[in-house]
Design a protein around this nucleic acid. Structure first.
Lengths: 221, 221
DNA sequence: TCCGGTAATAAACATTTGTTTCAAACGTGG
DNA sequence: CCACGTTTGAAACAAATGTTTATTACCGGA
């Protein structure tokens, strides 16, 4: 199990360094020295730095998509054709996201990586994630559509990304925010705690009244 | 006005490149060649790449904080001691943010930069922004507190960051999202449009019902 | 006109980056 | 025990980065 050990050690080290500093700011030498493996091991086992980055994501997203697909199967079975309630869908998504990294106590790393995947330009990453894991997201949004028939399609699209932003932003910046919260309110906040606080906010956001119609004839660059 | 021209050209070019690719991924050579100035000009006028990054932010944040402070002064004068309504505060913040880059039609650049400032590790940037512009944020949160006396302090703290996440996440990833939205819904979305959609969602999020109390005795790693 | 400092330029600098090379060590199946 | 494919190791590679150095060009005031 020598090669497996090396591969795992590289992945374990890389994911926390990536999460802390971003991809471009993390050199292979930093990773390999901290992981106590040879520099060439990365190119030997993964081929390139880009592939290493993708492998880091795959290790989270592969189990996640599997679990999530399973959970959605179960939900659809339970509701047999009827629309699944919105809160049930959100709850299921939350549970699936939480379960995967829970096995390694690395939720904040996972969330930070997700945040980077969005913000970071890194064209190849977005393309990779989209191609590899786009289908499960499509399935989820389809179910969301059936659960919120009163929303116009475009409005639902944007609201989904609004709440996605809330969750990723909050959980990926959790450490910094937690420090402030503890200092100011003397309250130790757990992830469970945050999810509990998130729930009513997310639901309220999705069910907010529709915006006033756009004023006509206003141009913008 | 030769030196001013060079300085401005560097800033103009740097800000769009930074916004497109991030800081580490944008080299001084790319900036200077695109701006048609000499490579050494950056170090001559700004001292270092770090200082250039800070200067890019200062060019947005200095006018913003001035306008925002002014707008808050005006609000406080209008309400003379009484609590300013939440929506008025949010509206004022939105207007101040929108006004500054409007002068150069570069709102998306500004937003992307804000998003990078959060997501990007770049320790020096966070510290710089915090030290230089933290006070206006403190003033704003104080007013928000007076506008939402029904919220427990901790709850308000988290909700503020929830909606901050929504806004920054959405607007900083605007280009990518816009592409999807246009492809799927054949709808060209402007920033004004997004702000209009954001408003009811943000208000609903801040006013959502309080979460169920935390279950007692549940431990977590 | 000439001087003085400011700015622009080209070249070189020292580091750091990802990647490649090739030899040595390893381990497993015959 | 030997041979062979796999993995590790140290070193070198080319390319790219931020920064510095001299040198030249510029330009307004004495």
């Amino acid at each position: 199990m020598a090669q497996n050990d090396t591969v795992t050690r590289i992945l374990d080290t890389a994911e926390v360094l990536f999460a802390e500093r971003g991809f471009a700011e993390t050199s292979l030498r930093t990773i390999t020295s901290k992981a106590k493996v040879n520099l060439a091991a990365v190119n030997y086992h993964f081929g390139s730095k880009k592939s290493l980055i993708q492998a880091v994501f795959a290790r989270y997203l592969d189990p996640f998509t599997e679990r999530f697909h399973g959970a959605l199967d179960e939900l659809e079975r339970r509701y047999r054709g009827e629309a699944i309630p919105l809160e049930e869908l959100l709850e299921t998504m939350a549970r699936s996201v939480l379960e995967v990294p829970a096995e390694r106590n690395s939720l904040k790393v996972f969330m930070r990586l997700l945040g980077l995947a969005y913000s970071q330009a890194q064209g190849h990453l977005r393309r990779y994630i989209q191609e590899e894991y786009g289908s499960v997201f499509t399935r989820f949004t389809d179910l969301i559509r059936q659960a919120t028939p009163e929303l116009p399609d475009a409005e639902r699209f944007w609201r989904l990304h609004f709440v996605l932003g809330t969750v990723i932003f909050t959980l990926s910046g959790l450490d910094a925010l937690r420090d402030i919260a503890e200092k100011d309110y003397n309250e130790h906040v757990t992830v469970r705690d945050l999810v509990r606080r998130l729930r009513p906010v997310v639901v309220a956001a999705m069910q907010a009244p529709l915006p006033a119609p756009a004023p006509a004839g206003v141009r913008e660059a």
